[in-house]
Design a protein around this nucleic acid. Sequence first.
DNA 1: AATTAAGTTCAGTATTTTGTGAACTAAAAA
DNA 2: TTTTTAGTTCACAAAATACTGAACTTAATT
Lengths: 152, 152
Amino acid sequence: MVLTEKQKELIEEFGVLNEKYGLPPAECRVWGLFLVADKVELTFDEIMETLNLSKGGTSNALNRLMMTHHIEYITKLGDKKRYFRCKMNNWTQMTKENFEKFDDLNIILKEILKARTSKTPQFNKDLKEVTEFLDFVYKEIMLAIHKWENRQ
Amino acid sequence: MVLTEKQKELIEEFGVLNEKYGLPPAECRVWGLFLVADKVELTFDEIMETLNLSKGGTSNALNRLMMTHHIEYITKLGDKKRYFRCKMNNWTQMTKENFEKFDDLNIILKEILKARTSKTPQFNKDLKEVTEFLDFVYKEIMLAIHKWENRQ
DNA sequence: AATTAAGTTCAGTATTTTGTGAACTAAAAA
DNA sequence: TTTTTAGTTCACAAAATACTGAACTTAATT
């Protein structure tokens, strides 16, 4: 598969952004390829050749993307190959999970607050307010997602 | 400064969580120390000794935490030392910035959508819906933060 | 039964990221 | 003016991460 310069550029841009969130470069590029490619279904070899990845690297990236539910594969009768494709119906789920991780921070902050000395009342009050703020934002986000899911 | 086992544990827990978001371990521990310590103002040497960090490592961690506005320092007349402390009044700002980074993803997805082939209408429709979802959630989050900032 | 196809696994390498500690700077104290 | 204090800088070492490619597995085909 031949990519246009624009497609390559978008893959890299998408990659750099996701690397910031801890994904390995190869995995980002594979995910990005699914988003920019002119076809929806891609085979192992196509991905490997288009991105100049090794077999091991390709295998690893695809399996990680499947574990995180970003992609899936389908099979075709009388064909041994797998056809991989991007899952587009799980973004609200994915986003929800992301914000749940954001709530983990608040859980630890509340634990910290509970364990703090009483000798620093102003600090404790400030920290309490932070946890209240995070609680509030988290609830509003979940409400917003719920609102989206139940729209007509 | 001597820490209780509980304090040490909380520092590590807070550290592991923040390492997931790309912060170096030493920096996470320093930040965590400010959150669990029985004092609000800590000196360079206190931090270094309490966490068994090197001078360079301590200097680097403190400067990075200052650049990201997580901590600040005050000085005292007739005292050369700096007294570092955690900034607790910038969490709404910090949170806002975090969500702006979340919006960057949507900006790229919209670019990708614009550049896509017209031969994959279902995929394009799905991707468009993702961007609309992300738009919606982002707006609701900003609204929520605004609501919090303007509460009485 | 041998060969091919489609991928997996893993040892080793390359790269990047972190942290150390000694040498350095700049200001204050002796 | 020398010494001490408070911290910075930077070369190097250690550790973690990511990728490659060859050997392997499993199933299908010849």
